[in-house]
Write a protein that binds this DNA or RNA. Structure first.
Lengths: 132, 132
DNA sequence: TTTTACTTTAAAATCGTTCTAAACTACTTG
DNA sequence: CAAGTAGTTTAGAACGATTTTAAAGTAAAA
């Protein structure tokens, strides 16, 4: 399925700007990035786009499940092209994230989900720091 | 150990402002809060403090391990008085966090920590959503 | 004491992100 | 295809959380 079809399937109009972003993000390679990172990539691909459009687009893509947003207390939002359930190592010093595939973690015993709620995804974060 | 001693032990001068905050936060009760939440509590305790001082103090307290900061992609930083290793339920709609004690989760099989790094804490986040 | 280093403060600045409202474009319906 | 309409993009302004500034204040050391 090409990117135009992916966008349509997600209920998004395949505009010129969304196609540029889809071509960068939906190439099957897993990466973590910020809005600013993406703008730089757009620029180096010879295109350009308002930062407002980039934010709009990232929000739409995320809400449609084309990308994920990482839970992180950094000051900048971090997005992830890996949309499968998976986990992360986090180097708190540098903010660097490394993917952990789902099958590398085995969670026995989970707590009971609070009354009236449904489980909507489990994320394991392993904080790491450089050895000295 | 009283709060003055706790601050000294953490390497922090027990100033008037830090004592006011310590008296609110270090009462043994686990809670999640923002800088603004704390300012409101300071105000209702009959005191007042510059917001810059509150941020300074929260950063110092966190760096000394007197409180923790929660990994969260909300726009406001969320702090936690529970400094033991523990986990969270997160309602992504509302941002509400609920503690999960460490012994309610059992992680068999963890991935190998990347070369040159040390494990610095594991956090499990269970995203939940309201049943409809 | 006197000195020195650290802390607090109000106000300004910064930075990521969202809003505004006007121009533009994709899609729908006739 | 033509015309309408609903959704999209944009630059720039606005916003809100947090940090910086620099001057005044305070705790601890000498």
């Amino acid at each position: 399925m090409n990117n135009k079809e992916k966008l349509r399937k997600a209920g998004l109009r395949p505009t010129k700007q969304r196609m540029i972003i889809a071509d960068i993000l939906l190439d099957g390679i897993n990466r973590h990035f910020t809005a600013e990172n993406l703008q730089n990539e757009i620029n180096s691909s010879g295109n350009s786009m308002s930062i407002a459009t980039i934010y709009n687009c990232l929000k739409k893509f995320r809400n449609c499940g084309l990308i994920k947003q990482v839970e992180s207390s950094k000051d900048t939002a971090i997005f992830d092209t890996n949309i499968n359930q998976h986990h992360h190592f986090l180097d708190e010093e540098t903010g660097k994230l490394i993917d952990i595939e789902n099958d590398e973690v085995n969670l026995h015993k989970l707590p009971k989900i609070p009354q009236g709620y449904l489980n909507n995804g489990v994320e394991v974060l392993i904080k790491i720091k450089k050895q000295i």
